[in-house]
């Protein structure tokens, strides 16, 4: 039985439909990411799971149990808030113990589990501090420990890394994935950062205007986007007309060369063009190349150390394989 089944769930706020007849199944042990821009409904969907919002239509089942009418404090779910929502008037240890006290556990057991949870996030000797005395990264770990100590069937994470600076974010990504695998829990994460969703999740859902546009493992969604929206939202894509349909072609699938590509083995497509713009990104550069089929984006790794493999206004050849482009449904 899947841990989460969402069947036709909808949520409206006045005239705005935040979540529009969403169907979604999440399996046990997954690290599932809800990905989308602001206002796409991903956070509302997460809040529907936590019980902070009630759906206007449809059903939500967690662990096979219908959640209709079940208030947040009786759901087998815990959430890590984007702002962390640590109680400022309690010590770190009391913050972590809060959920266990609500279960009425004996004092000794609570102390033991709090200590273990703080050790798990490497904050064993910070129990007596106040949240205001911690750094951003430490606060994030306290919030994580506070949610995990309850041993939830499902952990919800609302933009877990958004408040951290870039360097810390990279390390924390791996840390979250490690914890999720070690504990064998199901994580559902909301993020607007496609890199984060791609690198962490086992599966992800791309959302727009309250609907799920596509669900799948990261590589599948990236390599086989079904719609223009998904192709454009995840990574960069050249959208090319092809008869009465559209093709999505990733910039890195296009080979860039000075000489005309050899005739054998024959690339399915080749086209001449002129570089109009170069965006240098360190490890690679992104070229805008004007061709007879419009301006195409081409990405190439900067293998040579002197960098400048190509110049602006240079005549170049582009080539890509027959199966490089993805046919879009819409």
């Amino acid at each position: 039985m899947p841990i989460v089944q969402i069947e036709g769930a909808s949520k409206r706020f006045g005239p705005v439909t935040a979540v529009d007849k969403v169907d979604l199944t999440i399996e046990r042990g997954e690290l599932f990411a809800l990905l989308g821009g602001s206002g796409c409904g991903k956070t509302t969907l997460l809040r529907l799971l936590a019980g902070f919002e009630t759906p206007d239509g449809g059903r939500i089942l967690i662990d096979g149990q219908d959640m209709a009418g079940v208030p947040p404090h009786r759901r087998p779910v815990n959430m890590m808030f984007q702002s962390y929502a640590l109680f400022p008037h309690m010590s770190v240890a009391d913050n972590v113990a809060y959920g266990l006290r609500r279960e009425g556990l004996p004092k000794g057991a609570i102390a033991e589990r709090v200590a273990a949870a703080l050790a798990q996030v490497k904050l064993a000797d910070h129990g007596s501090r106040r949240p205001s005395q911690l750094s951003g990264g430490q606060r994030q770990r306290v919030a994580l420990a506070r949610a995990l100590v309850k041993r939830p069937k499902l952990l919800l994470l609302d933009e877990p890394l958004a408040a951290l600076d870039r360097k810390l974010r990279e390390g924390t990504r791996f840390e979250l994935v490690r914890l999720q695998e070690e504990l064998g829990l199901t994580f559902v994460m909301v993020t607007h950062d496609q890199e984060e969703a791609m690198s962490m999740s086992t599966r992800l859902a791309v959302m727009d205007l309250g609907r799920i546009k596509q669900v799948g493992p990261p590589h599948e969604v990236y390599e086989r986007p079904r719609s223009r929206f998904v192709a454009d939202f995840i990574g960069i894509a050249n959208i090319l007309p092809d008869g009465n349909r559209w093709l999505a072609l990733r910039p890195e699938k296009i080979a860039l060369g000075v000489a005309e590509p050899p005739s054998a083995p024959l690339p399915a497509h080749r086209i001449a063009g002129e570089i109009v713009d170069i965006a240098y990104e360190g490890d690679r550069s992104l070229y805008r190349v004007a061709t007879e089929r419009g301006v195409l984006l081409v990405s190439a790794a900067n293998v040579a150390r002197d960098g400048r493999s190509f110049q602006r206004n240079q005549r170049v050849w582009l080539a890509w394989a027959a199966d490089a482009a993805q046919v879009l449904d819409e």
């Binding site: 208030p71 947040p72 404090h73 959430m79 702002s83 929502a85 008037h89 609500r102």
Partner: peptide, 24 residues
């Protein structure tokens, strides 16, 4: 979100009020 966090951790609305809202 402080009150939501309390409820998420298993506190009833009344306990949430007594342990989180009122002290603050």
């Amino acid at each position: 979100s402080l009150e939501e966090a309390a409820m998420d951790l298993g506190a009833t609305p009344w306990t949430t009020f007594l342990t989180v809202t009122l002290p603050l």
